[in-house]
Design a protein around this nucleic acid. Sequence first.
DNA 1: TCTGGGGTCCTAGGACCC
DNA 2: TCTGGGGTCCTAGGACCC
Length: 392
Amino acid sequence: MTSTPILHVDMDAFYASVATRDRPDLAEVPVIVGGGSRGVVLSANYLARQYGVHSAMPMTRARRACPTAVVIPPDFDTFARVSSSVLENFRRVTPLVEVVSLDEAFLDVRGSIRRLGAPTTIAEGLRSVIHDEQGITCSVGVAASVSVAKLASRRAKPDGVVVVPPERVTAFLHPLDVGELWGVGEKTQAMLHRLGLITVGDVAHTPLRTLQRAVGHHLGAQLHELAWGTDRRAITPKAGPLEPERSMGADETFAKDTDDREVVVRELLRLSHRVTGRMRTAGVAGRTVTIRIRFADFTTITRSRTLPEATDVTVEIYRAAIRLYDALGLQRARLRLVGVRVEGLVPRASVHRQLVLGEPEHGWADADRAVDRATRRFGTAAVRPASLLRTY
DNA sequence: TCTGGGGTCCTAGGACCC
DNA sequence: TCTGGGGTCCTAGGACCC
């Protein structure tokens, strides 16, 4: 019997590894996977990391830090394909797989030990299968709990396994910086540091009430648990990262900041179209429409409005978005980004519309379905949402 | 030369209702 | 004649995760 049945499997530099696995010419070169001029680094191989490049770093900075790096645009179709193959390997070990993202998952191997051996044996088995089949490496953390397994896999990187048995949990956790804990980002880390709480051990030995006063009721309780490694969260099997969504949205950073209402309105239409298209594919409708505006100075605001009834109709979301935008009364403000999000999603079948007499709303739903069909047959370029503008 | 895009959850105040 | 109390919804902002 074992007391460390949770595995956290994390691909090493996933996007960069996949992007270069068939490119021996890039094996000894710093590689960055990332977007265009205003984008950020999605993934960097370990050679690029030696230059200080890391994910989420602005591309402009990354290129400056490592001018010799080869920059590759992301190919999410390939990433998703590799990811689901890896997921199949996981499911051959256990049905208890919780997918975190394309490159990360938790496995509860409690029920697989008799068949496959100790958790470490299972971990090494997975690593070699993934390496042989996909040509990429991963790291595995093994522990009694989800949170400790997650921290252990980070320690195992790259291409390794780290086991933290129960009796060594506090010895493992307490020297770590508070920033390592799940839920502690840059802001919270800085606040905790200001309070003199530098390590996880410091947090563990702080009275719960003090912690909660500093970071809020919920986070305070969570950090206290994590700091003692006492969280008992079970892994919840999920089909994938795109399971039962509570909201759907899209946003876009302009290539150049703009103060042109026409440009903004056109973008809001494009985004509304994109979001509702995804909603219709998923068979959901939503009531609350939120727009997001990011100004040139990066300050960001949101405005939202809850509709009387859930909808998946493009022009209804679009009209709500435009009303919210116009209500801001912006004059010369330069915008960097706009976004549209729909919240309060429910299955479309559960929505029974109150048809208002004289309002042919069903016409718009029919139009959407026609557009969806055309898009499926001829691609997104075939039917442009701008065609909706004239009729509206 | 800055800082993507997809999400989730929490907090807090006011409205509204019982 | 003070000023109740609690639950839920809506809105805005913020922090975090990958």
